[in-house]
């Protein structure tokens, strides 16, 4: 199977800083690729390369097997790259369906077709397991997990074939984290979308990941399918290797 998106030998430099060096990995449709790494490992730079904010200095990106170059975020979006950032790009005081269609409103004549917008919002949210009783209510009334789902549903509805989720669980409470994980699994079950799941949380990666790519100091530390990885050792890989063991022994057995 051709990967939906593939990075081959990607590097990015900022002046004399090597942000990313020789990054290669593949993402397939209907699969979740967990992108793991500690702060400063280069995760955000990688997202920005994928979403067209930065342009790589070396290497190539392949979309469905053919080389692509994203010169702007608009380029990436048009090619089917949907990025859901941590801040979600939502308007808290605006209604659910207006948020869903913001910037791409459905109109009849000059007016918004609120009826159709509401209906589509309801349907698309239902696909991801959230029942929106009233799409007219302000988004401020939704939980963090539901907002995350809205941002994801919006990206998918507007044609995302690759969904990049930038730490979608990091700012949420326990229950809401699980809601988001459930949403991500629903997206996977749709079967058409390749998901890049960036996270700090080894538990969440373990629950959802089909493939794992570990970044450390701008390089790929390890990259493999679930079956070939020692799942018990995820946390050590995430933290970039052995240093973590020493810290953990300090806190004793309870930490594990």
């Amino acid at each position: 199977m051709t990967p939906t998106i593939e990075f081959k030998g990607i590097s990015k430099f900022f002046g004399n800083i090597i942000a990313l060096k020789d990054i290669s990995f593949k993402v397939f449709k209907g699969e979740i690729t967990a992108l793991l790494g500690d702060n400063g490992a280069g995760k955000s730079t990688l997202i920005k390369l994928l979403s067209g904010v930065h342009i790589p200095d070396e290497g190539e990106i392949f979309l469905y097997g053919s080389g692509v170059k994203f010169n702007s975020p608009r380029d990436a979006v048009n090619s089917g790259i949907g990025t859901v950032y941590q801040d979600l790009a939502l308007q808290p005081l605006m209604s659910v369906s207006r948020n869903f269609f913001l910037g791409r409103e459905i109109t009849r004549g000059i007016s918004l077709d609120l009826k159709v917008m509401n209906q589509i919002t309801k349907e698309e949210m239902a696909k991801l397991g959230i029942d929106v009783a009233d799409p007219n209510q302000p988004i401020g009334t939704m939980s963090g997990g539901q907002r995350q789902t809205l941002a994801i549903a919006r990206a998918i509805y507007f044609g995302a074939k690759v969904l990049i989720l930038d730490e979608p669980t990091s700012a949420l409470g326990q229950k809401q984290q699980l809601e988001v994980l459930r949403t991500i699994r629903k997206v996977k079950e749709l079967g058409e979308i390749a998901i890049i799941f960036i996270t700090h949380n080894d538990m969440h990666a373990k629950i959802l990941g089909d493939r794992f790519t570990f970044l450390n100091r701008g390089r790929v530390l390890a990259s493999d399918e679930r079956a070939n990885l020692d799942m018990e050792n995820l946390r050590a890989l995430m933290a970039g290797g052995a240093e973590l063991d020493k810290l953990e022994t300090e806190f004793g057995e309870t930490y594990r």
């Binding site: 608009r74 950032y85 801040d87 979600l88 790009a89 939502l90 308007q91 808290p92 005081l93 605006m94 913001l102 910037g103 791409r104």
Partner: peptide, 11 residues
């Protein structure tokens, strides 16, 4: 409401 978010979705 949030100009950065608005620009991000093409407003």
């Amino acid at each position: 409401g949030d100009p950065v978010a608005a620009r991000a979705v093409g407003v």
